[in-house]
Design a protein around this nucleic acid. Structure first.
Lengths: 261, 261
DNA sequence: ACCGTTCGTCCGAAATATCGGACATCGGTC
DNA sequence: GACCGATGTCCGATATTTCGGACGAACGGT
């Protein structure tokens, strides 16, 4: 049907080309999020399949509400402050996330490396919180961007409650192909998961990015199911000693976050 | 009925009671933000003047888009994860805010007290970033909530580029009345501003809250105009010595954030 | 100075989203 | 067990929002 790796999203129309304003707005915001950059109104209209006149009308309304902001030489629009306010309300309203914010901020500051808090959404992995370390070598946070589960360290923990065949049915086959074209062997992936579960943490190197290592520890619900992970993103040449210390830090934080002690 | 200080917003109708979906959605989100709590659909409909059937229809659409989430025993709705993603995109896209996040996180962690980054929006003060300290005595962040300028320490810096009469014309007269009913004398307020400008920081005690002191330092643009503030919110009984150290911390951070060195 | 392109606004027509009200459910109360 | 209030769904009518296309302005390349 649709295979949007980074792909675009046309508004689905059943018969005619007419759609509700709210649906066009949702498509607009989703488009800005996937582009992650201020975008010209005409381009948004084209890429979302919205009539130009309609898009101008909607953008005016949204700018007035501060959902969007005109950027640069008035040529482009991007998210406005209202989104930040609503987003903060969301973060504060979810108990686990509120606690995770404290943990992530603390370990990022004390260890000095980028720390993240991650969960699943559907059959994809995504970063919910991202606190850059002192290094700041990864400028762009990838908050809310869906990533195939096998590309990530955390992903190996987040599915560890399933049986092997269940996992392979759950994850789309194409998600085993890395950005550089390599394919992750399914049995190695399953073995990774088993080992991670036993160790209580997971480490991956050079998966998405040749020079990056990810260290992750599981946040588990009372039933023992991994509901989220907390992790560090560090250069691959970080000393083993330092990595071991980080793993201990992660395990302690993850333990504190796990509901019901 | 409802008398929640921060006023409610009925959807404006010109002639008939009919409104666009997008306008109803904006009113809905604004309402949730002002209530800051999961709210029942029927209540939202009543308080925003939206027909119940319309509200149910819209909420369904928004829940599907993850703009909203059903909470509790499915009885109420509140902001969903999409708002957080869009809000994060906004934060990352504004240079000053991105830098301020680093500063606020750092000083909150090292000093251990709640730190904030604030600006003006129209003739109101508002908190853009809030990082709770170790104390965490103020649980609810007030991000995106508009507050009268005279109620705040930062407010005294944010208007310090104006002449006295300009300031008094700019700030609505009723904003000089504190939550407890006391009225701030206008000449004392003007004097506060002058002193703050000379000192390069400002301190207020027991303004909004009897037991709270605010310390703030100005972030200035190349022309010297205060475009934002960075501040600490601490218990009023914090020692003078500790407060002096915090002031120095704030001034250093504010200096780093001021564009053009 | 001459095009071709993009930007933003405006307008009338008609497809349809909003609205009001009816209805079925569910829980709690007396 | 009857009553009351609140919740959520459904449906048809019509007021209105969306849409297409036209238009003038602004821009940039030749």
């Amino acid at each position: 049907m649709k295979s949007n790796g980074v792909a675009e999203k046309q508004v689905e129309e059943k018969s005619t080309g007419r759609a509700r304003g709210i649906d066009r707005v949702i498509a607009l915001m989703e488009h800005l999020h996937s582009r992650r950059a201020p975008t010209r109104i005409a381009d948004i209209a084209r890429d979302t399949g919205t009539p130009r006149s309609t898009m101008y009308e909607l953008v005016n309304t949204l700018v007035e509400a501060r959902w969007l902001e005109l950027r640069d030489g008035e040529g482009t629009v991007y998210f406005g402050p209202a989104m930040h306010y609503y987003g903060s309300d969301y973060l504060d309203s979810v108990d686990l996330i509120r606690k995770a914010r404290v943990e992530v901020a603390h370990i990022a500051e004390t260890v000095g490396e980028t720390a993240q808090f991650c969960t699943l959404e559907g059959d994809k992995y995504l970063v919910v919180l991202n606190e850059p370390g002192r290094r700041m070598f990864r400028i762009s946070s990838e908050i809310g961007i869906k990533v195939p589960i096998p590309w990530t360290a955390s992903g190996r923990l987040l599915v560890d409650h399933m049986a092997a065949d269940e996992i392979l049915r759950f994850i789309p086959s194409e998600d085993f192909i890395l950005p550089d074209g390599r394919r992750i062997a399914e049995d190695e992936f399953i073995e990774d998961i088993r080992r991670a579960r036993n160790q209580g943490y997971v480490r991956t190197t050079a998966l998405v990015d040749r020079f990056t290592t990810c260290l992750a520890a599981p946040v588990r619900d009372p039933a023992g199911r991994c509901i989220a992970t907390i992790c560090f993103v560090v250069p691959a040449d970080t000393t083993e000693e330092a990595q071991q210390a980080m793993i201990e830090t992660l395990k302690a934080s993850a333990e504190r976050l796990s509901p019901g002690r």
